[in-house]
Computed example of a mutant assay.
Amino acid sequence: MMILIGIDTGVNTGFAVAIDHGDGKGGQLNEVTSMSITKAMTQVNALIWEHGKDNVRLFIEDARLRTWFTGGKEKAQGAGSVKRDASIWEQWCKENDLQYTMIHPKANATKYNANSFARITGWMGRTNEHGRDAAMLVHRRRTKI
């Protein structure tokens, strides 16, 4: 069993957990939420404590690779913050010797509304945009176990 953690960086960090049982179906969603970056890091540590470092993998959206922005100065400043958070996550993963992959934003299916997300994933719990984006990083993702 592999624990897959999806991270959508930002002030409201999207956080999702999926479990890959090695049955060929890929990651089955277990948690979809959002929280602060520090709470998300605490949650990652808790999952590592519970399942072991070798059984946890992070998939982090790398906003530093995004080159398209619309919406003016405020959006551009927010984009800078999200890019900084991607750098923080990468540095934190390296410092803690974690298994992680930085995912290009174009490689992730994002911006689903709640109804579409529920239909695609089967997740019936409450979500917000950040949690849904994080979930799409790990939903049905297959790993080598």
Results as ranks from 00 to 15, higher is better:
16 A>W: 02
67 T>N: 09
65 L>E: 01
70 T>M: 05
21 H>I: 13
58 L>M: 12
78 G>C: 06
85 D>N: 14
51 H>K: 15
24 G>C: 04
32 V>P: 00
35 M>S: 12
27 G>M: 06
26 G>N: 09
19 I>Q: 13
64 R>T: 14
41 M>S: 07
82 V>F: 01
55 N>E: 10
10 G>M: 11
26 G>W: 00
54 D>P: 00
83 K>W: 03
18 A>C: 07
54 D>W: 03
10 G>I: 09
50 E>A: 15
45 N>Y: 02
67 T>L: 04
79 A>Q: 10
36 S>G: 15
12 N>R: 13
50 E>T: 08
27 G>D: 05
55 N>K: 14
31 E>S: 07
6 G>L: 04
52 G>H: 04
84 R>P: 00
54 D>M: 05
48 I>T: 08
37 I>Q: 15
79 A>L: 14
42 T>E: 13
21 H>L: 12
81 S>H: 11
41 M>C: 11
7 I>R: 04
20 D>A: 08
10 G>C: 05
35 M>D: 15
43 Q>T: 11
54 D>C: 07
17 V>T: 10
85 D>Y: 15
61 E>V: 11
24 G>N: 01
39 K>T: 04
28 Q>M: 09
59 F>G: 04
32 V>G: 08
57 R>W: 00
20 D>V: 03
40 A>V: 07
54 D>H: 10
28 Q>I: 14
11 V>W: 05
10 G>P: 03
58 L>Q: 13
13 T>F: 02
50 E>C: 06
6 G>T: 11
84 R>Q: 13
49 W>S: 08
64 R>W: 12
25 K>G: 14
23 D>M: 11
37 I>A: 14
13 T>E: 03
7 I>G: 02
55 N>S: 15
13 T>A: 09
21 H>Y: 15
22 G>W: 08
13 T>H: 05
67 T>H: 11
81 S>A: 15
7 I>N: 03
